[in-house]
Amino acid sequence: MPKNVLITGGTGFIGKYLTDILIASDFSVSILSRADRKNTNSVTYYKWDLTQNYIDENAILNADYVIHLAGEGIVEKRWTKKRKKVILESRTQPIELIHSILKKHNKALNAFVSASAVGIYGADTSERICTEETPPANDFLGLTCQQWENAADTIAALGIRTVKIRTGIVLGKDEGFLKKVAPGFKAGFGSILGTGKQYLPWIHIEDLSQIYLKAIMDIHMNGPYNATVTDNTTNARFSKILANLYGYNLWLPKAPEFILKIVLGEMSAAVLKGQRVSSEKIQKTGFEFQYPDMETALSSCLK
């Protein structure tokens, strides 16, 4: 029987892509879903409802691995006090429920792999290069990621190998970050945000999916890993490349910081700040990026 991988957030952008990768690699896949979905030959769906603090226990009991991707979007809505609570709890509550079921049934997993984000290093722009040893920041993104990872550590405390994938901006065709920004650029209205000097840690969806696959299969992987390309891309460089791929040079003035702060509030930090992030640790595992170059990655996403 193929090993089973249970995915939270399996119907989202990353989850859908990862599901195909796992099936192609001879795993069976289970997905937690709020909606009623019919099982297929390759995917089994289980119900969960975080508002009721409920997960079908069979999803956990039948799993050999769990990949936790679920979480409300960071830049979907303004960061009100209520929204911040939703962002945090949508990431930590599923882990708490999984932990309780594992502990209740003394259930072992081969590995628990949780998403995290390079936001743990904070909304900051500087020349420092963040590694997995860099202390978490004390702002909203840093504290959210820290609590997210602390929740994952409770799984590790059960003696289960636990891997935390700190992800940057994910590039994919018609999905994720590009789904939000590409239409404006395609229409000829692309522009640099703020100074444009803020770094943009990024990764192609294919590479990210392969990192998750490796995290399952490589028994030596443990703890946090940065999942970003280390090429020091800034917002200005990204914007220029994307505009060029659509056949024009940037002509609009930079979007002023103060306007973005008025429109987005505290959330503006997510687009106006960005840090340099090292990928050395994941590369030392033997992982090689298929898309190490921004232009090549963007080009593949626009085809």
Rank of each mutant, 00 (worst) to 15 (best):
N53M: 02
H204V: 10
E295H: 10
N53F: 06
I95S: 05
A215V: 10
A35V: 08
W79Q: 07
A151S: 15
D231A: 03
K104A: 09
W148V: 08
T167A: 02
E149M: 05
V277N: 02
H99W: 13
K186A: 13
N226P: 08
V229N: 07
N150D: 15
N150P: 01
D139I: 11
L143A: 04
I160N: 09
A123E: 13
S116N: 03
I155K: 00
K38W: 02
C145G: 11
K82Q: 14
I7V: 09
N150A: 13
F112L: 03
D49S: 07
F258S: 15
T144L: 15
G12M: 04
I23M: 06
D20Q: 14
F27K: 03
R161L: 09
I120Y: 14
A156P: 01
N110K: 12
L260E: 04
K103E: 13
L109M: 03
T233P: 00
A70V: 10
K240N: 12
S300K: 14
G9R: 11
K77Y: 09
I23R: 10
L171F: 15
F112V: 01
E133Y: 11
A243V: 10
L242A: 05
K254A: 14
E57Q: 13
G247E: 02
I101T: 12
A152Y: 11
P256V: 12
G159I: 06
D124P: 00
W202K: 08
D26F: 11
T154L: 05
V29T: 07
I7T: 02
L143W: 00
A215N: 05
D64T: 06
L141E: 10
Q146M: 13
L69S: 05
A24H: 11
A117L: 03
V66D: 01
P2S: 12
D139Y: 08
Q52I: 01
P224I: 11
P201K: 07
Y46V: 08
V118C: 09
N41H: 10
D207W: 09
S28R: 13
K214E: 10
D231T: 00
H220L: 00
D124Y: 13
R37C: 06
K107H: 15
G188P: 03
G196H: 11
Y291G: 00
L208C: 01
Y65V: 11
Y46S: 04
E127I: 01
T125Y: 09
E96S: 08
G176L: 05
P2F: 07
R37I: 15
D36T: 12
T131W: 05
V113M: 01
P183M: 12
Y54A: 07
Q147D: 14
Y46D: 04
E295R: 12
V43Y: 09
W79E: 04
G71C: 06
P135G: 07
G265A: 09
S239F: 07
Q290K: 15
I160Y: 12
P183W: 12
E96P: 00
S30W: 04
N249L: 05
C145A: 12
E132A: 03
P292N: 07
